[in-house]
Measured scan of single mutants.
Amino acid sequence: NITNLCPFDEVFNATRFASVYAWNRKRISNCVADYSVLYNFAPFFAFKCYGVSPTKLNDLCFTNVYADSFVIRGNEVSQIAPGQTGNIADYNYKLPDDFTGCVIAWNSNKLDSKVGGNYNYLYRLFRKSNLKPFERDISTEIYQAGNKPCNGVAGFNCYFPLRSYGFRPTYGVGHQPYRVVVLSFELLHAPATVCGPKKST
């Protein structure tokens, strides 16, 4: 009989979020998941679920829940969905086509923008091939755009693969920082350890 609540607040209220190319993952297990707390949290810009209804989450049990978190621009949030393409979905964070879970995003301009620009948040701009679902690539190898080998030196046709967002408070909404948490639900042939409040007695 599990009684402790799942530590969703640790994920959602973290002081610093990860850059999207180096997205953070927390495994959540052996706890009671009260999703209504999240669902009623006012400032969400997006709360979209795939393969599961957000209002039914509290009735369900899962083997594991993974909480992935990172920061992207407002106009990139739409790429955090199954079957998407674009710089983020291709080179930074890719969801599987059969994704079961929820994508939760909110504007973090007050936290993550600075006058003069916040350059701490990076994304991958160049990559030889697209990421596989949930693949994480933190390499900083110089990207070779031409035929000539770069030998690890940036220059003509040789690019550092990461780019900084440089968030400023005055940017338009599409270019403002958004914090994103992706909850993915794993249902294995194993005992369920993460259940909603109704199922955990």
Rank of each mutant, 00 (worst) to 15 (best):
P197Y: 15
W106G: 02
N64D: 11
G86L: 02
G117D: 02
H189D: 15
Y50H: 06
K26F: 08
Q176A: 04
N109T: 03
G51Y: 05
N40T: 13
L183T: 01
I138P: 08
F167T: 00
F134S: 09
D112Q: 02
V71L: 06
Y21C: 05
T63D: 13
I80P: 01
G86I: 01
H175W: 12
Q144P: 08
L131T: 04
E186Y: 08
V37C: 11
R163K: 15
Y121C: 06
A190T: 14
L5N: 14
N157T: 01
G101W: 02
V77I: 12
G116V: 09
K110C: 06
G196M: 10
K148I: 13
V194W: 10
K94F: 02
D9M: 15
N92E: 00
I104D: 00
G152F: 08
F12G: 04
P43S: 09
S108C: 06
S36R: 13
D34E: 08
Y35I: 13
E141C: 07
A154F: 04
G117Y: 03
R25W: 02
R124I: 01
S36Y: 06
R27P: 08
L57H: 06
A67N: 00
L125F: 08
C49N: 01
G101R: 02
Q84F: 06
I72C: 07
R163H: 15
D68E: 03
T15R: 10
P54E: 14
I2T: 14
V77F: 08
L60I: 11
V103A: 02
F47W: 15
N30H: 11
S69H: 04
V182I: 09
P96Q: 05
N75K: 14
T140L: 10
Y39L: 14
R16Q: 13
Q144G: 07
V37G: 11
F126Q: 03
W106T: 06
Q176F: 02
F167P: 00
Y66N: 10
E135C: 06
L111I: 14
L183I: 11
Y121M: 09
Q144A: 10
N75R: 14
V77C: 05
I28A: 07
R179A: 00
W23E: 00
I138Y: 09
S113H: 01
L131Q: 02
R168G: 00
N151R: 11
L125I: 07
S36D: 13
F70G: 01
T193K: 13
Y91H: 09
Y35F: 15
A22E: 11
P82H: 02
I88L: 05
Y21D: 01
N147S: 06
I2M: 14
T140A: 13
Q144N: 15
G83H: 11
V153T: 14
N151L: 12
D90Y: 08
V182D: 00
R124E: 00
N58W: 07
P82K: 04
I28S: 04
N151Q: 12
Y178Q: 06
G146H: 05
R179D: 00
K198H: 14
P96V: 04
Y178N: 06
R163E: 10
S164H: 06
G117Q: 04
S164M: 06
V65M: 14
W106H: 04
L122M: 15
Q79E: 07
P82E: 01
A18W: 06
V11L: 08
A46H: 15
N75V: 06
T55G: 14
C6A: 06
D112P: 01
G166I: 03
Y35R: 08
G196Y: 10
P161S: 05
N13R: 09
L131E: 00
F156C: 04
G152L: 07
G152C: 06
P197V: 15
L183A: 02
V20H: 00
T63P: 08
F41C: 08
V182Y: 01
I88H: 02
C150A: 00
N24S: 13
N64W: 09
F99M: 05
G174E: 08
Q79W: 01
F126Y: 02
L162P: 00
V11Y: 06
R127C: 02
N130I: 14
A145K: 05
D137I: 04
T55R: 13
G172D: 00
N147H: 07
P54V: 14
S200L: 14
S200C: 13
S19F: 02
G51A: 07
K128Q: 12
P43E: 09
F45G: 15
P96K: 06
F160K: 15
C49F: 05
A190S: 14
V77N: 03
V77H: 04
S29A: 11
I72R: 01
N4A: 12
L111S: 09
P82F: 02
A67H: 03
N157G: 04
A105M: 08
N109F: 04
Y123G: 09
P197N: 15
Y39C: 07
L60R: 11
K110M: 08
S69W: 05
L95P: 01
T193A: 12
K199Q: 14
R136A: 07
A42D: 08
S36N: 14
D68Y: 04
V11P: 03
A42M: 12
S78F: 08
C102V: 05
V180R: 02
K198F: 12
P197K: 15
K110G: 11
F8W: 10
F134A: 09
W106Y: 11
Y143H: 10
A18C: 08
N147L: 06
L162F: 06
D137S: 04
L122S: 13
Y39E: 15
N109L: 06
G83D: 07
N107G: 07
D98G: 09
L187N: 15
V103I: 09
R124T: 00
C195V: 12
W106L: 08
N75W: 15
G146K: 02
F185G: 05
F126K: 05
T140R: 12
A67G: 03
G155I: 03
P43R: 09
P161D: 01
P191T: 13
P177H: 01
P191R: 14
Y50I: 04
K148F: 11
K56N: 13
A33H: 08
I88Y: 01
N64G: 11
I142N: 03
S139K: 11
S108I: 01
P197I: 15
G101K: 01
N87V: 15
Q84D: 03
P7C: 10
K114D: 10
P133A: 10
D9Q: 12
L131H: 02
N120H: 13
K148M: 11
N120D: 13
Y93H: 01
G166Q: 07
Y121K: 06
S139Y: 07
S53P: 09
A46W: 12
T3Y: 09
Y159E: 00
V181T: 04
S29C: 10
Q79H: 05
Y143F: 13
T100D: 05
A105E: 01
K110P: 07
P43D: 10
C31L: 06
Y93C: 00
G172R: 01
Y39M: 14
P169E: 04
V77M: 09
N157C: 02
G152R: 10
E76I: 03
V20E: 00
T15Q: 11
N40L: 09
T170P: 03
S36I: 05
P54Y: 13
G117A: 05
A14K: 10
V153G: 12
N1F: 08
A190L: 12
W23Q: 01
V194S: 11
D59T: 13
W23D: 00
